[in-house]
Amino acid sequence: MNLHGLEFPDALFYAPAHGLWLREETDGTVTLGLNAYGCALYGEIFAFTPKRIGARIERERSFGVVEFAKAATSARSPLAGELRAVNTQLLERPGLINRDCYGEGWMIRLHPDDWLAVRHEFPQGESALTALAEQMRLDNFDPEDRHVQALKWK
């Protein structure tokens, strides 16, 4: 799926307000990563500092810090649960998030408290595009901005 030149794989779940994608894993964990819109908003990422494995992550609380350009922000989790895995490649190569956000650039895996009860909150497919378009509208996202153009997925 494509929205304003940004790619969003239709098999993933999305948390538009967080700029994240989510993927169910067979072991009951959920993988989270920055989606193409999140990458466009942040620009080039210079560092990712996650919380430690085993940490309890509350919904809407930080699972790590993302540093970009001249700022840093807490990456907030749309889920509560236990942090089970961290993409350690990002510690040395945080630019993987920008280059392959849906693949090698994944960020963390959580064992959510009750994924089946909350998964309906995260749209997929066409519903995700609608939700992402609305988030872009709320953020006053300008797809014609020349800085954004340089970040579009190829």
Rank of each mutant, 00 (worst) to 15 (best):
L138F: 01
P50A: 04
E7Y: 14
L83G: 08
F8A: 07
A80V: 02
R146L: 15
G81L: 06
G28N: 05
F68L: 06
L116C: 13
W153A: 14
E126F: 12
K154Y: 11
F13T: 03
H111T: 15
I53A: 13
G38H: 00
H120A: 13
P112D: 03
A11M: 11
H111A: 12
V118L: 01
F48R: 03
P112M: 00
G28F: 02
D139M: 12
L34N: 00
G125I: 00
W106C: 02
E134F: 09
A55I: 09
L6F: 07
D139C: 10
Q124F: 11
Y37C: 01
D114G: 06
L91G: 15
G5Y: 07
L83C: 06
D145W: 09
A11I: 10
A75S: 09
T130I: 09
R137W: 10
A72F: 10
D27K: 10
N98C: 13
E25C: 14
H120E: 14
C39M: 05
A55E: 07
Q135D: 07
A80C: 05
G81A: 04
C101V: 06
L34R: 02
G95I: 02
P123D: 12
A11T: 14
K51N: 10
P16K: 10
D10W: 01
L6S: 01
G43E: 00
R56I: 14
L79P: 00
T31H: 09
E144V: 09
V118S: 00
E134R: 10
E24K: 05
L151I: 07
H147Q: 12
R109L: 04
L151Q: 15
L138Q: 15
Q124W: 04
M107D: 03
A80T: 03
I97Y: 09
F46N: 11
H4T: 01
A75H: 00
A128Y: 01
R52V: 09
S127W: 08
V66S: 03
R93V: 12
G105T: 12
G103Y: 11
R76C: 01
L132C: 11
H147M: 13
L110H: 08
T26E: 07
L6R: 00
G28H: 10
T49G: 08
L151G: 11
I45T: 08
I97R: 05
L79N: 00
I108D: 01
G125H: 08
E126A: 15
A36W: 06
T26Y: 02
E58C: 10
A55S: 15
E7M: 05
I53Y: 06
R59K: 12
